[in-house]
Amino acid sequence: MTHRWSKAWALILFCAAVFPAFPVNADTTGLTSTAMLTPISDQQYLTGSFALDRHLDGFEAPLTSTGEFTLSPSKGLIWQNLKPFPDTTVMNDQGITRKHDDRTFETIASGARFHQFIALISAVLGGNWDPLSDQFTITPAKTATASNWQVTLAPKNNNGLSEQISQIIVKGDEFVTHVTLHKPSGDRDEITLNDQKRHDLPLPTDLAKLLSGNFD
């Protein structure tokens, strides 16, 4: 009955899908070196905007949200919903925290395990597919080109991921541009990423505070 890591798995899936930077060193998986991206180092962070369309099986209209994100391979991820409701979720080594409108914070989940998803993102951003290959079968699209590529991730059956995700399709060019998470229920999340920029650390003070767990 150890379901409490389900959110962690969901985050790992989410992050693995959204930020799988690109197969610069793809020898171990057979991916061709089509990436145009220079991997983000630990001394850098990535910012951009997103649009999330959550398609629920049997319903025509998706639940749509838009906002901005900040990813630091060494610090974590800040996911800021702007529409339809402002909401900030911080994910770092210590867990998931939600910032409420009244500037209070609520810990959604905590534990050292969250190191795993940060490490996963960092490894991927470094162009190393090995961490993903433990959990996923990674298949590059045959029609991919260096400027327009696609990778399909399928959870391996020997872990619990397959209970929550059936397939992830990642598309991109210089950055990841589009991610589709297919769930066993038939639902799917479509995530479009735009305006991505790479910056050198340090993070702006307010973001650094959020990612360091300083919520005062």
Binding site: A10, L56, S65, N81, R98, S185
Partner: peptide
Amino acid sequence: KTLYAPASMVSA
């Protein structure tokens, strides 16, 4: 907020 959360487990 759960409806739009990045790692939400909501489904139809």
